[in-house]
C-alpha cells in the first residue's frame, strides 16, 4: 500500500537523492570550480606534500581544524588564529583537511604563529615537554637515535643523539607552509 504506483515510488526515491546532490554538490561545485587560488597562495613543494602525507598518516585532522571562523562567530579572530579563510585558500588541498574537531588548536596559520623548527620537533617528539597540559600523542617514530651525529643531522637539542628523520623535517615543512596570512585580494562566495 504505497498509494502510488511502484515505478513512481522508485522515481521519487531516486529524485530525492539527486535533488540533494544537485543542491549540495552540483551547484556549489559549479560556483566554486571557477574560484582561482588567492594571489598570495603558492602550491606545496615536494617536501611539503610529503609532510602533508605524514600529517594524514598520523591522523592529525581528527584533532586539528584548518579553517578560521569570522569575527562574531567564535573567537578565532580574538585568538589571532588568522583572518577568516576563503575557498581560494584551499585550491591546492587534495584531499581537503578542513577538520571538524578542535581537541587541539586550529592549524591553518600555525606556520605564521609558531615558525620555530626546534619548538615543532620537540613538540612532535614529546608534546608534554613543551606544553605540559597537552594530550597530543607523541610521535617518536619520526625520530631516530644515532650514536654520532653528522652536520646534516637535526638533533632535538644541541648535543642530543635523537635526530629528526626526513618525515619529521617534511612534516615541519608542511606546518610552516600552513600560512594563509596574506590578504584576501579577490572577493569570494
Amino acid at each position: 500500500m504505497l498509494f502510488i504506483r511502484l515505478w513512481m515510488f522508485f522515481a521519487g526515491v531516486l529524485a530525492t537523492l539527486f535533488l540533494g546532490w544537485a543542491a549540495l554538490i552540483g551547484v556549489p561545485g559549479v560556483q566554486l570550480a571557477s574560484v582561482p587560488a588567492q594571489p598570495g597562495l603558492r602550491p606545496y613543494t615536494y617536501e611539503e606534500m610529503h609532510g602533508r602525507e605524514i600529517y594524514m598518516r598520523e591522523g592529525c585532522v581528527y584533532c586539528h581544524t584548518q579553517q578560521t571562523r569570522p569575527q562574531g562567530f567564535g573567537t578565532d579572530q580574538k585568538r589571532m588564529w588568522g583572518r577568516p579563510s576563503v575557498p581560494g585558500d584551499y585550491v591546492y588541498d587534495r584531499p581537503h583537511l578542513l577538520g571538524t574537531s578542535r581537541t587541539g588548536p586550529d592549524l591553518l596559520n600555525i606556520g605564521a604563529r609558531q615558525p620555530s623548527r626546534d619548538w615543532h620537533l620537540a613538540h612532535l617528539y614529546n608534546p608534554r615537554a613543551v606544553v605540559p597540559e597537552s594530550i597530543m600523542p607523541r610521535f617518536p617514530w619520526l625520530f631516530e637515535e644515532k650514536t654520532g651525529t653528522g652536520p646534516q643531522d637535526v638533533p632535538l637539542a644541541p648535543g642530543s643523539h635523537i635526530v629528526a628523520t626526513r618525515e619529521a623535517l617534511d612534516l615541519y615543512a608542511y606546518l610552516l607552509a600552513l600560512n594563509r596570512t596574506y590578504p584576501v585580494r579577490r572577493a569570494e562566495p
Binding site: 540533494g20 546532490w21 549540495l24 554538490i25 556549489p28 561545485g29 566554486l32 570550480a33 575557498p87 584551499y90 585550491v91 591546492y92 588541498d93 587534495r94 584531499p95 581537503h96 578542513l98
Partner: peptide, 16 residues
Amino acid sequence: YSGVVHGAVNWWYGHN
C-alpha cells in the same frame, strides 16, 4: 575532488 568542494562532498556523504 579538492579544496572546499571536497569538504562539501565529505559531509554530504558523512551525513548521508
